[in-house]
């Protein structure tokens, strides 16, 4: 994937497929700490430890009882290639946390890319899922909680074009404010 925001989109699609009703997305973009972090925490169906192993390293595990996907291995590879770490913590019936870090200055680190595009895509496809998006830089933090938007919209779906537009601009303005020159 050309952008980390595309990996993010793919990883959150897993949470949606897992039946999550609440998804917390965290982005850290810190030059001072030479760190980029992406985390996705959901309350979906979860996975057993053995299953997590299998989906994380589909080529090194011997059991191939099902066709394995590529999204998680690709994300892991991206983190490990860019001097970072990759972790999945999951519990059946509780949910899953996917975490990836990257060395900010690493030349192999893909750019974060169009985070707003990813958020808008997710909200468009799943307007009723509670998405809590937190974006942190050296200059501060910004939080978008789609529950607040739903409250204001009082029954009007938040994936109507005008609302998506507003959310997109809201994200972009806050991101611009927080990103270093």
């Amino acid at each position: 994937m050309k952008e980390l925001s595309l990996h993010l989109l793919d990883i959150v699609q897993n949470s949606i497929s897992a039946g999550a009703s609440r998804i917390e997305i965290g982005i850290t973009d810190s030059q001072q700490r030479d760190l980029v972090e992406i985390s996705v925490k959901d309350n979906g169906c979860g996975m057993s430890e053995e299953f997590v192993q299998r989906v994380t390293d589909p080529f090194t595990t011997t059991r191939t009882t099902r066709k394995v996907g590529l999204g998680i291995p690709l994300f892991k590879l991206a983190a490990e290639t860019a001097g970072g770490e990759f972790k999945i913590t999951s519990e059946v019936g509780k949910g899953t946390l996917v975490y990836a870090s990257f060395q900010h200055s690493n030349i192999d680190r893909p750019p974060l890319g169009d985070l707003r595009g990813t958020l808008i895509t997710l909200i468009q496809g799943s307007p009723d899922i509670n998405i809590i998006y937190t974006y942190t830089t050296d200059r501060g933090q910004f939080v978008l909680d789609t529950e607040e938007v739903r409250e204001v919209m009082a029954g009007v779906p938040i994936n109507e074009p005008e609302v998506l537009n507003w959310i997109g601009e809201f994200i972009q303005e806050n991101e611009a404010e927080l990103s270093a020159e």
Binding site: L6, I120, T121
Partner: peptide, 24 residues
């Protein structure tokens, strides 16, 4: 289609274009 290969191949801006044009 918004699975891994769709996303990697550029499905995100395609979806955005449909949403924008249909809204407009």
């Amino acid at each position: 289609g918004m699975a891994t290969c769709g996303i990697a191949a550029g499905a995100r801006p395609v979806l955005a274009t449909f949403v924008d044009e249909i809204g407009r």
